[in-house]
Amino acid sequence: MQKRSTTIRRHREDEAAARFTTDRRRRALRARRLRRGGLALALTAPAVLAYVVFVIRPIAMTVQYSFYKWDGITPSTWAGLSNYVAILHNPELSGSIVNAFTLILFFSFVPVALGLFTANAIRGFATSRLAVVARTVLFLPQIIPLVAAGIMWSWQLSTDGVVNQVFRLLGLGRLARPWLGDFGTALPAVGVIGAWVLFGLCMLLLLAGMTKIDPSLYEAARVDGAGPVREFFSITLPSLRQEVVVCLTVTIIAALASFDIVYIATQGGPGNRTLVPGLEIYYLAFFQRQVGSASALAVVLMLLVLAVVLPLQSLSREGKS
């Protein structure tokens, strides 16, 4: 501590002296700053190198591949925009994109809405023992691999699974069905798996945000005679703008880029009903060996994620200012 205060004092003196520098010293200073700048850039070099070699270059290659017809083995031929045109015209490809957007409903809106509701309901006892246990339990789905979530749930959602067992217990046996094998329910069922995984994260993020809200705001609202509903919409929700945007961003990326869960639970079936771009890229590139159209779909996927996520960020910035 002592040493630090003396060094800081010395530094102040140094600064005072610097105010009276001659031209020569100023030039020396600039030279030093430049040298330091060079050294600083050198510090970023390893990270930049890894990033360029394993991210930027592959992105550029994906774009390049997307203009070719290539089987990955024999020479390629130039294909122009035909791979992109195919995405528009081939219902299998365009369908996968529609499916991904449908998944947003389940991966994003359900966890955020349910998270808001739950966090609001329990913020009053956020520090109680129950809430502390809940924090650990609700977080479990976040730390296990998505593959594991897929395995567990495909077993639970099967014909003889727990879900149907519960329905039968409740006397709703006629609702029981093979959830992942039914055209009407397969995609929502995959969505439920995603919602299960992402709910805990959203809830805890929102809860953490709520505990930061100044309690006097609520007291003032109560004095004004606001009920819990008005309180939620006029105080809680506006204060959580940033957290909500974060939840939406994370979960929307998870929905659009989903792969693991679908790969394990349905492989895209029944009848392509749960085919998502990630899985279709994998099939096209490594199984059907249509590297060009797979790459075109990959480019479209990257752009779609940006197109959805970037506008969201400005929403959060408005909230801060």
Binding site: L39, A40, A285, A298
Partner: peptide
């Protein structure tokens, strides 16, 4: 240290923040 050109580098990194891994899996292979 905030070197000259650092901001551009940083924005370059930011661009990769939302990248779905599927986007580059083919060239990586």
């Amino acid at each position: 240290l905030r070197p000259p050109g650092g901001r551009a580098l940083f924005i370059g990194f930011l661009l990769g923040l939302t990248l779905p891994f599927e986007g580059i899996i083919i060239p990586l292979y």
